[in-house]
């Protein structure tokens, strides 16, 4: 509306997170790992299933965290990558009779390619525009999956039923428990790989782009390559999570992967603390259990409770679980003295 051109000094979209603050110390990590390994021995199958979902969503949140906390790009479209991963696994298992474990890397690779390609147009967008483009992707995904053209493979609106794998080598454990340990192993592998990725040369390039794109390119970082790469890695991990999700839920259908899922994952990241990888599991717990609790209070109220809690997080602990963890650490240190 004014004749002058808009001149904008762009503030970074995400606050900078020091690299050291992105992970847990060794001791804490081992305690968390031990808890995750031992817990299923003492609980019922349904709770084991929920814990499996907790890990799966934690993986998806972790993937978003690499994209946003690492390279400073947004995505409200993670559900689309999750859906592609889930469908890849389901189709390979049901139509090609492939072993479930083998479908996961394939899902990851396909999603990596999908994310990398989607990252190309996303390259030219930043901040709100990127949020918008990914938002549109997530809304469009269920309709794409329902297309009559793919119906032979995807099962259309009905979706596909996936068989749950048995424990191998005649191990004496239930299907749920085996799947839990399988998911746990995959998650640990991906977590360690992600931590190392962020510590590597590529990770430093991501963070340089996040903090100041122009400065990064002046230092010789190939901005276009690393931005699309971040999208690809994030989509790939989300795809593996999607594949695991399909195996755990034993079912894929277009309406399971709506924008609501993408928003949940985004909220999970905000609650867990942007850029703090261990926070992913806290965020995942938030998006799995809070709606259940809210639903218990009142059927229609779950959205409102969700929203109010989110505002509380934004206002009180803008760094999410990371901030809470730091405060707790400070308190413990004080007690020791």
């Amino acid at each position: 509306m004014s004749a002058a051109e808009d001149v904008v000094t762009e503030a970074p979209a995400v606050e900078a997170v020091p690299k050291r603050a992105m992970t847990l110390g060794l001791g804490t990590s081992l305690v968390v790992l031990a808890a995750l390994c031992l817990a299923p021995l003492f609980v019922k199958n349904f709770i084991i299933f929920q814990m499996t979902m907790l890990l799966i969503y934690a993986l998806a949140v972790l993937a978003l965290n690499i994209l946003t906390g690492g390279s400073g790009q947004f995505s409200l479209g993670q559900s689309a990558f999750y859906a592609v991963g889930a469908y890849t696994s389901a189709i390979l298992m049901e139509h090609a009779n492939m072993n479930y474990a083998l479908t996961l890397p394939i899902a990851g690779v396909i999603c990596f390619a999908f994310g990398f390609i989607f990252g190309q147009p996303a390259l030219r967008l930043s901040g709100v525009y990127l949020a918008l483009a990914t938002f549109a992707l997530a809304t469009a995904m269920p309709q794409l999956l329902k297309l009559g053209f793919f119906e032979h493979w995807t099962g259309g609106v009905q979706g596909l039923v996936v068989t749950k794998p048995d424990a191998p080598f005649g191990l004496p454990m239930s299907q749920d428990m085996w799947l839990y340990y399988f998911t746990l192993a995959v998650s640990i592998g991906i977590y360690i790989a992600s931590v190392n990725l962020l510590k590597s040369r590529s990770g430093r390039a991501f963070m340089a782009i996040r903090d100041n794109e122009i400065a990064a390119s002046a230092m010789g970082v190939d901005v276009a390559l690393y931005k699309t790469l971040a999208f690809g890695v994030s989509a790939g991990i989300t795809g593996v999570a999607g594949g695991l999700g399909a195996i755990a839920v034993q079912f894929v259908a277009p309406d399971g992967y709506t924008i609501t899922l993408a928003i949940s994952l985004f909220l999970g990241m905000v609650v867990g603390g942007v850029g703090w990888l261990p926070g992913s599991i806290v965020g995942s717990a938030f998006i799995i259990f809070v709606p259940n609790i809210a639903e218990g209070i009142s059927k229609g109220l779950s959205g409102a409770v969700f929203g109010v809690l989110l505002f509380l997080v934004i206002f009180l602990v803008p760094h999410g679980a990371r901030q809470v963890a730091m405060i707790a650490q400070g308190l413990i240190a004080k007690l020791k003295n």
Partner: peptide, 28 residues
């Protein structure tokens, strides 16, 4: 207003929270 200085990400989260609250309250 309190979020005016916050990063874009926080604002987007705020809009989404508002979305969830308004939708749910209207349904209620």
């Amino acid at each position: 207003k309190p979020l005016a200085k916050a990063p874009v990400l926080t604002n987007v989260a705020g809009f989404i929270a508002l979305f969830a609250i308004v939708n749910s309250v209207a349904g209620l």
